[in-house]
Design a binder for these strands. Structure first.
Lengths: 160, 160
DNA sequence: GGACGGCTACTCGGATATCGCTTGTCCGAGTAAATGCGG
DNA sequence: CCGCATTTACTCGGACAAGCGATATCCGAGTAGCCGTCC
């Protein structure tokens, strides 16, 4: 199991947009240059964020992407769901109903698969932890552990 | 992000081995027949469980796999780690140090990446939830929600 | 000088290739049981 | 009838392909600003 690296790209991009502010859209080219990422592929990830309503896109010169909501209204879960899709990591294939179980009555499987339920419990814990953290939290933590980072990024952004 | 389906196979296989008991090894062929799975590929997953020390393998006739520990000593995390590998789902590529950050001093990155830390927090919640559930719990839950399942499986196993 | 029309350059957006990992299969090494033979 | 050597069949184990999704790239559609021209 491995998350798409687009998740990391999207999170850093959102943080950069939060730093720059929502007065102006940030084009894909600048986001890609800021982290040395392939611009076209990063654009693909940002499109996913736009489809999910996390960012808004404006075409044409001076266009780009900007956060659609306030940072405290954007959770890590939102971003992750936008990039990875809404489905669970563990997908029960109901193999209990195959083979030996194929001859059992349909009522035997009225209760959900216990294994799937257990995996879902863990996944809910993961999702809850992700939903509990917002982009504003990330920003605040960064200001605490690396106070110069935001200013450096803003300075670079203004001069390029 | 999607877990290998081998995870589901391995969990059901472990549950079956717990039902049958550790008096006798269960060959891959029977496990595969029980759930209509491709035998050779299932064998590959069981090998991973053996490497992780979750099951022991005995070759030759009457050979197969059996649980290496008591069910209450086998957590879902153990099985998942054996199949999926021990690495985190989110792998920080330190893209903060690329592009704009490349010119920053090395001391700027003494603190771990905040985004990676946030993702790790969520992942730890997931792992904790998985480690809290053992194969014995799964078995007990199944006895509660589908009491006939274990007996049906044992009956089928004895006659095939 | 001001306003309008056309042009240019820059943006997103989706269609299109390439790569790596998951999935799937195969055959060989080893072992325990079964079997046949000799005592 | 009993014990032993041989054969046999069955198991795991790792090496070898195929399929599919993630990764990466390219080109077209659309728009905002700019420039030249006309009034």
């Amino acid at each position: 199991m491995r998350l798409n690296e687009g998740v990391e790209w999207a999170l850093h991009s959102c943080l950069l947009m939060a730093w720059v502010g929502d007065q102006q859209p940030v084009p894909t080219a600048k986001l890609a240059a800021a982290f040395e990422l392939p611009p076209a592929y990063l654009n693909k990830q940002l499109q996913a964020l736009a489809r999910a309503g996390i960012v808004t896109s404006t075409p044409g010169p001076k266009g780009g992407f900007q956060l659609a909501r306030q940072p405290q209204e954007i959770t890590l879960m939102d971003v992750l769901s936008a990039i990875e899709g809404p489905e669970d990591a563990f997908r029960c294939q109901e193999i209990r109903q195959r083979g030996v179980g194929a001859s059992a009555s349909e009522a035997s499987f009225a209760e959900p698969c216990v294994i799937a339920a257990a995996m879902r419990t863990a996944e809910l814990a993961w999702r809850r932890a992700l939903s509990a953290q917002t982009l504003a939290d990330i920003r605040a933590d960064t200001d605490r552990s690396a106070p110069q980072a935001a200013e450096m990024m803003r300075g670079w952004y203004a001069t390029h």
